[in-house]
Design a binder for these strands. Structure first.
Lengths: 168, 168
DNA sequence: TTAAACTTTCAAAAATTATTGAAAGTTTAT
DNA sequence: ATAAACTTTCAATAATTTTTGAAAGTTTAA
C-alpha cells in the first residue's frame, strides 16, 4: 500500500471509530491528520486537506484542545497558529479516559449514589429489583472508576505488564 | 427519594449514558425499564410507560435482543410476547463488551493490520511518523483486545479481584 | 376459512447534530 | 490611526439519526 492511500484510509478509519464512540467524525479526522503529520499544521492546511469549512475547522480544533489531544504552536515571526497532536498513544488513551471519566462516569456515579438512598418496602418486588440493579451497577461503576484512576497514573509498560500478566 | 421518582431518574440516566456511548437513547431506556422490572413486560406496556410508538418499541426490542441484553418470554395460554432483561450486571457488561469488540475493535484491528504493510522511504519524516502512529495504535489495540478477551471469559469476582489487587 | 390478536415493516416526518460561510472580532505592524 | 492578517462567532442550512403510524404480515382459535 502507498503512503498517500494509507493516510486517507487511516483518517477515514479513525473518523469512523470516533463516531462510534461519541466523538464527532470531523474531530476524529482532524486528530488523525495531526497524528500522522510530522509538522504542525495551520487551520488553512487542515481545511484544505479534509475539505471542511473555516468555522468547522476552528471549532473542531478548539474542542480537540479542550480534550487535551492537540496544542497550539506559534512560529517565530509568523502570525498564523499551528496545531500539533501529542504523538504518544498512551497519553492519548489516558487523556480520552480522563475526559470521559469526568464527563460521563462521574455524573453517573453521582446519580447512582442518590438513587441508592431510595426508600421503600423490602417485601415489594418492584422495590427489591430496583434496589438490586442500582446497587450492582453502582459496584461495577466504582470498580471501573478505580481501574481508570490507576490507569491515569500509570506508565504504559507497567500497566499492560501488570494487566496481561494477571490474565496469562 | 420515592421509588416512582427514582425509577424515572434511573431510566433517564441510563438513557443519557447510552446515548453518550453510541447506543440510542430509547434503546437504553427500554433496557433500563426492563432491568428494574421484576416481571417481563409486553410491547404495549413498554410503549405506554415510555411514550413511544409501536414501531419504535418493536425495533428497539429487536435490537436489544440482538445485543443479547433481553429475551422474549411466552406465557402459557397467551398470544402476547413478554420481554425481560438479564439482571446480572456482569453479564450485561460482558455482553456489551463482546458486541462492541466485534462491531468496532475487530474492524479497526483489521485496518491497522493492513496499514502496517505500507511501504515507503525510511528517511521520509512523513513515512516515519505515519508508521510509528499506526504501529503504536496497533499495539495498544492488541492489548485492549487481549484484556477484553479475558474479561469475556472471566467471572466477575475473579476479574475485579485480580485487577484491583494489581492496582493496590 | 375467517377474523381477531398480535408483530413487523418502512416511507414520511420530526428531532437532533454537524457544517457552512459571511460578518464581526482581534492582533500586529507600520 | 489604519489596514492587513488572522481568528471567532453564530444564524442559517444541510446531513444524519430517530420516531411515527398506518398498512402489511403472521399466527392462532374456532
Amino acid at each position: 500500500m502507498e503512503l498517500a492511500a494509507a493516510k486517507l484510509k487511516f483518517i477515514e478509519a479513525w473518523g469512523k471509530l470516533g463516531s462510534e464512540w461519541g466523538i464527532n467524525r470531523t474531530m476524529a479526522q482532524v486528530h488523525a491528520l495531526l497524528l500522522i503529520s510530522p509538522e504542525a499544521l495551520t487551520t488553512e492546511e487542515i481545511m484544505e486537506t479534509l475539505s471542511i469549512s473555516r468555522g468547522n475547522a476552528n471549532m473542531t480544533l478548539r474542542d480537540l484542545i479542550g480534550w487535551g489531544l492537540i496544542e497550539k504552536q506559534h512560529k517565530a515571526g509568523e502570525r498564523k497558529e499551528y496545531f500539533f497532536a501529542d504523538k504518544d498513544v498512551w497519553n492519548i488513551a489516558r487523556q480520552v479516559a480522563k475526559e470521559r471519566k469526568k464527563r460521563e462516569l462521574e455524573p453517573v456515579l453521582k446519580v447512582l449514589n442518590e438513587l441508592s438512598t431510595v426508600t421503600g418496602d423490602e417485601k415489594d418486588p418492584e422495590f427489591k429489583t430496583f434496589k438490586k440493579s442500582v446497587t450492582d451497577i453502582n459496584k461495577l461503576a466504582i470498580n471501573v472508576d478505580k481501574t481508570l484512576e490507576t490507569m491515569l497514573k500509570a506508565e504504559e509498560s507497567w500497566f499492560w505488564g501488570s494487566v496481561l500478566k494477571v490474565f496469562k
